[in-house]
Amino acid sequence: MGQEEKIREGFLAAFGYLQDKITIQRSRRIFVTVDIEKFAEVFDFAVKKLGFSVLCVITGLDEGDRLTFIYHLDDGSGVMLNLKTGVSKERPVIKTVTEYFPSAEVYERELVDLLGAKVEGLLPGYRYPLPDGWPSGEYPLRKDWIPENKNG
């Protein structure tokens, strides 16, 4: 059994509801989709029990009426776990993971600025990456956001 299969088995032993939610895309690439309600326990398990101790980055996507977030985690040997979760745009709330990874702060601020996510538990600090005078409610990475000077 390859290491990717072992990771799948590890997830399934702990969380039977992930049965159809795990995709081994190729060697060293695993995608797991988790409902937001179950995200905290699956994330905790991946970090503490399966050894995914490096957070590479968090990607945010605008997928129509939902925002999707992908937590790209590495186990130190090159295997990448991509943990996906999603929230509705009406209530785009996720919890911070800075208590696991202090470096997540800047990735989460980016989700706040560019996609309009609300990150519970994220301590106050400088915004990133938009300037201080940026108008509120304008989220550049949302699909319906069009830059004023799009054509120059």
Binding site: G125, Y128, P129
Partner: peptide, 18 residues
């Protein structure tokens, strides 16, 4: 020490989508 980033933001990720 506090670090403030973002002075070089050019919006390349958005530009890539277009």
């Amino acid at each position: 020490i506090d670090v403030r980033l973002g002075y070089n933001h050019r919006g390349i990720e958005k530009a890539c989508e277009e």
